[in-house]
Structure formats: structure tokens, C-alpha cells
Amino acid sequence: MDSVVNVAALLVFPGGLFVIAAGLFYEWIDRKIIARLQNRLGPRWFQPFADTVKLLAKEEIVPERVNPILFVALPLTALAGALTAALYVPMAGLKPAFSFPGDLIVTVYMLSLLTLCTGLAGATTRDRFSLVGATRTLTQLFAYEAPFLLALLGPAIAAGSWQISEITAYTETHVWILVTQPIGFIVALIGLMGKLELPPFDSPEAETEIVAGALTEYSGRGLAIFHLGKGVELVIGLTLITSFYLGGLSNPLAFVLKTVGLLVVLAALQSLMTRLRIDQTVGLWWRYGALLVLVQWLILFVIQIV
């Protein structure tokens, strides 16, 4: 019986189909809101789904002088990493499917696997745009990763545990951590934008310079899978931040309301800003992001000691 539940957790909920579908749906919300903010009509609700189906049906072109195994394996690894991360977060407001002390760190690094795979995918294809894109992707990874993790650890310190389920239990019963740790929330939110390479942190895939960045040479299935991975990462990122900072996710309704609310904020931020150069991105994170979150920690420690 247990094994059936485990397989279901991996393939259907919260790991497999559910989170992929949610990713596509959230991507549509994101695109629609941005379009409306930019005075455009935006896509219909099934557009991301249709895009994925179309891409999956297309021929996948493996460029010359590329290791074909690596070329195919990288998107799969990326998606697998993202889907694994979904098992440890309180998806849809329910208890995480799996849980162990310290799973917060594992989750965050499972999410980074996607970025890492994107970078490697760009580096293996030997395309000039891909190479620059890959360099930028990895540079950006080193820029936001530490501040983002530190920002997520803030609530963990408050809860006294590095286990997502326990932190969620703590946040549900206490005042929103957004109120007690506002700086951490801002850093986490902007960190998520950096992680997802959303504007203004989209220089790794800046189309006016390097076409599509690291994924320039990807087509068909590989591109679709990377795309799905992005969607999954969006959902997990939103879930993590809402469950940590916005008073937890006690039921599916709260999950939908809070994550979509956060997505609206993300979309508004995206449409407001100009793309940063990669050096400006790195500068922003290490000069302000990391510093801010350390200040937050200091405040936290002082309060806890007092």
C-alpha cells in the first residue's frame, strides 16, 4: 500500500502531473497579467499547454559536435530535480509527501539543479550565443543563490527547524513572518525572480543580445522539458515563499489565493523594470541583497537573545 502511495506521490500528486499542470497554469497567469499590464490581450488559458504539446510533437534537432547523451539527459535531469523538490514542499496546502530534518536545503538545491543543467546545456552546445548565455546563467546562479538561501533560512531560524513541514507548522500558528522579517521577504521574492530569470534578471536569455541564451540550440522535446521545469520551479518557489513568509498554507484555498497573489506581485515587478546587465545583477546581489539579508539575521538574533 505504501509503495502505491509513494509511486502516486512521485507521478501524480504532488510530484508529477499535478505540479506540471500547475506550472503551466501559473505560467499562463504570469503571461496574462504582464500582457494586460502592457496593454496587450495576452494568451488564452491553454496557450502554455498548447505550446508544450506542440514542442513535444516537434523534431528535436541535436546539433553537430554535441554529446547527444548529455544533450538529451540534461533537460530530463533538470525536470527530475524540480519534480523531486515538489515532494518536500506543502504543495496545494497539504502536508509534504516526504519530510526529513534539513529537507529545506535539499529542496533549494534541487531547484538549483535546473539552473545548473541550463548552464551546462548551453556550454555543451558550442553555440556562441549559448556559451555567453551559459556563462551568464551560471554567473547569475552564484549571484542570487546565497542571498536567496539565507532569506529562506530566516523563517527556519524563527521556527527553530530546518524541516519544511515544521517551519510551515510554525508559520501557520504564528503571526506572518512577512511582518516580523520584511527584509527577508523582499530578498526572497527578488531571489525567486533571479532564479527564474524573470525580468529584470533576464540577461542570461536577453533576446536582443544573445537570442535565447543557453537554450538557443534547444528545440522540440528538450526545450519543452526545460520549459516545464521552469514552470515547476515557479510553483515550488511561490509555495516556499508563501508558506514561509505569508502565514503558511493550511488548505488548498489558502494555497491558491496566496500563491496567485504573490504571482501578481511578481508579474507587476517584471513589467516595471528594465533588464539589468549581468554585472549590474551580480553587483545588486552582493552589494545589497546579501547585505540586507545579513542585517535581517542580525536583527533576528538580537531579538531572540533578548
Partner: peptide, 13 residues
């Protein structure tokens, strides 16, 4: 120019 800078909202408007 706004589009090249990655400021698509300004471009659309």
C-alpha cells in the same frame, strides 16, 4: 530602444 534595453512595457506603450 526600450525593447533593446529589455523594458518591454515601455515598448508596448
Amino acid at each position: 530602444a526600450a525593447h533593446e534595453a529589455g523594458f518591454d512595457t515601455l515598448f508596448m506603450y
